[in-house]
Design a protein around this nucleic acid. Structure first.
Length: 261
DNA sequence: ATGACACGGCTTCCGTGA
């Protein structure tokens, strides 16, 4: 089973690039972030025509997340991260596909830090940690996939010293990510590439992609029971170099679920 | 310290992103 995550930076603008990538790589499950489209503007017919069914949580202009499954409808288990009924931002959606619980998330950016946006990021992160602990305790085979807006270590930033005060790299944010991992989650991409410089995002500015001035902020985390099934984890880096690209590249994992109950 | 690029929208600029 191949599960991918892709921050598309606008589903409407990115639709041709998304459809091309789906056609070329055919992942079984895809988590999308930054739809930047209201619920009624999600291009469901085009997604269906590509062989996928989808659930999504839209929002006008900002945020928005979706889960696509090839040839079947994801069975939704939740939308909106638990812990704050007043949170109106569409950043979390959760579903079961072929017995695997998939949580698609778009963690807040948090800049500028300090400030109210950074406070919201930290609070959102705490809610995620709380909910992730419940998912671990449930024993379900789970993948947390999405744009976490966190570079976990210095290996994940092209120039760490320039990012120490940024909301994506501040110590408290990295600490939160490591507290999350400490629950037992496996960082799939880093596990398969322990020492490699490997990025998932390149700024549109200053020829960042050409200079490989990137960040690793899109992650797939596996629950303890799923970690032994991990066979591959890669970034479809070339997608970032195409016409009208997102600033993120798709990231995917391959799980060998054969012989599982 | 600033701004570069791209997105959506109440579009001819603004707020936001990372």
């Amino acid at each position: 089973m191949r599960i991918a995550t892709f921050n598309v930076n606008g589903i409407t603008s990115r639709l041709p690039a998304l459809l091309q990538w789906l056609d070329e790589t055919g992942p079984d499950v895809v988590c999308l972030q930054e739809l930047k489209a209201p619920q009624e503007k999600f291009p469901e017919p085009a997604i269906n025509a590509a062989g996928y069914q989808a659930i999504w949580h839209g929002q006008k202009s900002w945020n928005g997340v979706a889960i696509l499954a090839r040839g079947q409808l994801p069975i939704e288990t939740g939308r909106g991260l638990p812990g704050d009924p007043d949170d109106a931002q569409s950043r979390y959606i959760e579903a079961v596909v072929d017995g695997v619980l998939v949580a698609g998330l778009y963690l807040p950016n948090g800049n500028p830090a300090p400030g109210p946006k950074f406070d919201y990021k930290l609070k959102w992160f705490e809610r995620l940690i709380t909910h992730a602990a419940e998912l671990i305790d449930s024993g379900a085979d789970t993948v947390l996939a999405g744009d976490f807006n966190v570079m976990p270590t210095e290996l994940d930033v092209y120039k760490p010293e320039r990012w120490v005060d940024d909301a994506l790299f501040r110590p408290e944010v990295r600490a939160a990510f490591h507290r999350l991992l400490a629950q037992g989650w496996c960082d799939a991409l880093r596990t398969m590439h322990p020492d490699e410089t490997i990025y998932t995002f390149w700024d549109y500015f200053r020829n960042a992609y050409g200079r490989n001035a990137g960040l690793r902020i899109d992650h797939l985390l596996l629950s303890p029971g799923l970690a032994p099934a991990l066979k591959a984890a890669e970034v479809d880096r070339d997608v970032r170099g195409r016409e009208k690209p997102s600033d993120h590249a798709p990231v995917w994992i391959e799980l060998d679920l054969e012989g599982r109950p």
